[in-house]
Design a protein around this nucleic acid. Structure first.
Lengths: 373, 373
DNA sequence: TTGAAAGCGCTAACAG
DNA sequence: CTGTTAGCGCTTTCAA
């Protein structure tokens, strides 16, 4: 039966005592009855003592093995082994001013959108000895401030933001904290610090052109209410109208079905139903997520509408399933892994003192042409 | 133009100096040329000085406002406001032996399976002042050890494991660390510490019964290779055979299509194709994820096989889209939110010194009956 | 209610 | 290559 209590032993007073017989001068009774704490874990001092070296030497043996004699190295390693010592990185971080923590903020981990980026960051940073702290900002600003406080308080070596920060106050505090910041998933000429993203406007524009080239004449949109999705949709509408689609009516007249995040298949179905009512001869729909697109396709199928013959569908995200649908989904692909890797590299380099020269990276996007459009 | 450098100002020497005219005795030149560090941020001392109180008083004003006079409280708050002070939680954690960090370990964040749990933990713990550290163990053991080292080194106030720990070594170290541990997503009579999960065996069994009751006679399985998925499938096979399905052939003969995680729609399609070759008169398939089930359904559709008339399909996970499919997907629902909340509660209670009496919670599961089976 | 002292466990600066 | 010393920024303990 696994006895387990958050409080370990009751003060193991005597920190020395072990198979070792060297210098056991403990000084003149360092045991006072006054201020004394310690949770009773094994510390670097215990290891050093057991190895017969000074704490700092043990520290070096663990952190910069090359700076220490092989003999000492071995003794320290044995002591670590014997004691099961695990360095306290909180203490190390306090002393060295390097927490080896990186905060990653996403609107939400629900939904497939930010999975790739979170996954890549976690992996890449872990390989470099960093741990990811996860924060969810929600799609509203409200939580941003509290979250920021919690993050800055932990003195991370970097912050990766998914989507640029909205509140000016937040940007200011982040800037003031001096923590390296990478904003992602969007573009702006004035990032807080570093930026790895792509243009939502360009996506909307290019999708409109793509559909125009393929002879579509009556387009519509199903999209999330969040700000970035809106920008894709607006830009799509403007370009579509500029190209003479939808009978040259204003962009504002272009049928749009707005859904609240997270986007779902069901919303896609309802979206198509609604749009067909607004504009029965719609021949192309741009969706702000692949899940919405799937919903549109399923709804179309159940109505006997041929994809893409009668109705073209374009998604966003290139989720794993999109290439396996029938017909396969034409969609916009974002290289989440690439963004994650670059963001991680930015932070690792900064921590290593390497000056990052090109602070803004546009990773672009690609329209994956398949049968649905 | 946002100038930004990881190194803030160059030693803001004069920490006092502000719109205030009280006691400006700085003591006799506290500036030495010897050992001196500090990243130059604003510390509690600065705040205390500005407020005209001792650091400890400022600390109390922030942490236990009720233990301080209203007058002091206000002065400290003003000082915090004025300086933009953010407490260094690393230092606080070191001193108080409470990091307010909780490690959450999942096999991977890719795929929808653990989203709900990660989301809920992050939210619930954030509301209680904890930050989540994310770790991915992968589906192999190899990374478990390195990950554990990184986690324990940060002295989190709790660890939430998704799936029970495999390596005995890992279990031992976790136990030795004295950190509260919550294992989830599975059941075992001998957890490391606390447990919130459900029985994968029971799921397989119940699904077999469910299909049997509905008159299915020739069943098959599409499932992931990971250990928990395997247990569901094995248990399903055994029960199916025990109930006389598949002509009473042994469980080992029950057709199974194994896929490597993460499970995908495409694998579901291939799975059905393969299974129909093995056993053309298959009339029910249990899939180890909803995505696989969707793949099976799409493949069936493209082959003109009627769901559920000719072929019943049962998924696992009850993803958001499952209720919007056509036909709607019958599936096994796990209450990820509930698991996350209970796990968070376990850890928060432990941190508050509340003794957790019932350390093992079986949250169960439910079979959501819809049209696909 | 407030404060002084001590120290959490570690590492940056110097010396040897 | 190794050690001494002095903190990192905060909170605990004890005393006023």
């Amino acid at each position: 039966m696994p006895q387990h209590s958050p409080l370990p032993e009751n003060t193991p007073d005597d920190t020395s005592a072990d198979a070792r017989g060297g210098r056991d001068d403990d000084g003149p009774e360092p045991r006072r009855r006054g201020p004394r704490k310690s949770a009773g874990g094994i510390t670097l001092r215990d290891v050093a003592q057991l190895a017969g070296v000074a704490p700092i030497t043990a520290s070096r043996a663990l952190n910069t093995p090359s700076a220490v004699s092989p003999k000492v190295l071995q003794k320290v390693r044995e002591a670590v082994e014997k004691t099961g010592y695990v360095p306290n990185l909180l203490a190390g971080g306090l002393a060295s001013n390097k927490s080896r923590l990186v905060a990653v903020v996403v609107p939400t981990v629900i939904g497939p959108v930010f999975q790739e980026i979170v996954h890549t960051l976690t992996e890449t940073l872990a390989a470099a000895g960093y741990q990811v702290m996860l924060g969810q900002s929600g799609y509203e600003n409200s939580r941003e401030d509290a979250l920021l406080e919690a993050i800055i308080g932990r003195r991370p070596d970097g912050v990766v933001l998914t989507g640029i920060m909205r509140s000016a106050e937040a940007r200011k505090r982040l800037l003031a904290s001096g923590i390296p910041v990478v904003e992602t998933w969007d573009l702006t000429p004035t990032p807080i610090d570093m930026l790895v993203g792509f243009s939502h406007e360009a996506i909307g524009r290019e999708v409109a052109r793509y559909l125009h080239q393929r002879g579509r004449k009556k387009v519509a949109v199903v999209g999330g209410r969040d700000e970035r999705s809106q920008r894709r949709m607006q830009s799509f509408a403007q370009e579509a109208v500029a190209l003479g689609m939808n009978d040259g009516q204003g962009a504002a007249a272009l049928p749009m079905y707005h859904v609240i995040a997270p986007t779902t298949l069901g919303q896609g179905r309802r979206g198509l139903a609604d749009l067909l009512q607004q504009q029965p001869d719609t021949d192309a729909i741009f969706c702000s997520s692949d899940l919405l697109a799937l919903g549109v396709m399923i709804e179309a199928q159940s109505r006997g509408i041929a994809i893409s013959g009668q109705l073209a569908v374009v998604g966003f995200g290139d989720l794993e399933f999109s290439r396996d649908l029938q017909p396969r989904l034409t969609t916009v692909r974002i290289d989440g892994t690439g963004i994650g890797q670059r963001a991680a590299r930015f932070i690792i380099d900064r921590a290593a003192g390497i000056e990052v020269v090109e602070r803004i990276v546009d990773v672009g996007f690609s329209i994956i042409q398949r049968e649905s459009a």
